[in-house]
Simulated assay, not measured.
Amino acid sequence: MREFMSNPNIEKTLTNKQTFIFKDLVGPYFNPNWHFHPEFQISIIAEGKGTRFVGDHVQSFEKGDLVITGPNLPHLWRSDDAYFEKDSDLTTRGLVIYFDNELLSESLLEKEEFYNINKLVENSVRGMEFYGETRQKVNQLMPEIAEERGFSRIMKLLEILDILANSEEYNLLASPGYVNVFKGDDAEKMQIVYDYVMDNFKTKISLEEIASLLNMTPTSFCRYFKPRANKTFTRFVNEIRIGHARKLLLEDNFNISQISYECGFNALSNFNRQFKSIVKMSPHEFRKLFLNIKTSIS
């Protein structure tokens, strides 16, 4: 049964009687709030696209996206602006599993048979994005959990975990040094920052304005932001801009110069430099690579 996200600010967690829960979430947009929780989370994007934040990692997402996040790893799947427009008829759908770490106890993970599962658990603290055949298999299996009952549901979850644990088709997301340092009202403050940047990255970002929203000076804001995001504010803004640029490069509707200005860069040279720093290839190389992939698939 699908659950309509009528109030996307509320996220339910496990009760003491539940080992895991499966949710089929349908709504006009994904939960727009930066958050974390004590459960592991496996997420599939069945419909929708936007920008994914996991720890200090920023990347675009689209249909089929498969990610596992470990306990207390901050994350956010933010739908594109088009999903928030008043007259939008767009919808999103996410298949999500939350499971308790008691399912994979420390004593169990020490057993020889659980070596790969233990490696999966260790890697999940940074978040893992899966691709290729692994993504296809899990995309097929996840909906089947809704039809299972009792211990059969556990077996289906273990089957999915086994596929993920034995896969080499993944990318680690948050950086090795990332640590969740959020306390008290940090999540609320960082949400203000994220919302501001997502609303304004196509134009000049005002450090003074964002700092004032948190009742800070620009200097104190920069000191506050860096240890919580594990990067400078400038780097964060550039990653958002480059993430949007990657989407536009794949759509092939604009030339690279147009994309540069559309993403908030005033100079093409700076755009090229920042793109290569973040993506490890030039915008031209990125577009050519994915056009070749698209051609070979078709």
Rank of each mutant, 00 (worst) to 15 (best):
V54D: 07
R52S: 14
N238T: 12
K280T: 04
A229P: 00
M198G: 02
G184D: 00
F84S: 12
L90I: 05
N118I: 12
L213H: 11
N33R: 02
V279E: 10
I278A: 09
F30K: 04
F225A: 01
D185P: 07
Y115G: 08
P32Y: 00
F36Q: 03
D89N: 12
I242G: 09
K280W: 03
F182K: 01
N270M: 15
H35S: 00
I21C: 01
T19R: 06
D80K: 09
N238H: 14
L120Y: 10
H57E: 05
A82W: 05
S175Q: 11
G64M: 04
Y194K: 02
S269T: 11
L25D: 06
G184E: 03
G150N: 06
R228L: 06
I68S: 01
E11D: 03
S282N: 13
F271N: 00
K86E: 14
T232V: 04
S260V: 05
A245M: 09
K119I: 10
E102H: 15
Y178T: 08
F114K: 13
T13K: 15
S43T: 00
D80S: 11
V279S: 07
P71Y: 07
P8S: 11
I42T: 02
F4G: 09
G177E: 08
P8D: 04
V58E: 08
L157Q: 14
E39L: 03
Q136M: 04
R78G: 08
N31G: 02
R235F: 15
E285C: 13
Q59T: 08
Q140F: 14
L90Y: 03
V58D: 10
F84K: 03
P28S: 14
L120F: 15
N31D: 03
T219P: 02
Y83G: 03
T51S: 01
E285K: 15
L109H: 07
K49P: 10
I45Y: 10
P227L: 03
S43D: 03
V121L: 07
N266W: 15
A146Y: 04
M5R: 15
F4P: 10
L158V: 02
R246Y: 09
F290W: 14
E106N: 12
R78C: 04
T203F: 13
S257C: 04
F114L: 14
R149Q: 15
I240C: 13
G184T: 00
K202F: 11
L141F: 09
M1N: 07
L214H: 03
F182D: 13
R78H: 07
D252R: 08
E122Q: 13
K111F: 07
S6I: 10
K204E: 14
L291I: 04
A146W: 05
V96S: 10
L213R: 10
P74M: 02
E62Y: 15
D56R: 01
T69A: 05
D81M: 14
M142K: 00
G150F: 11
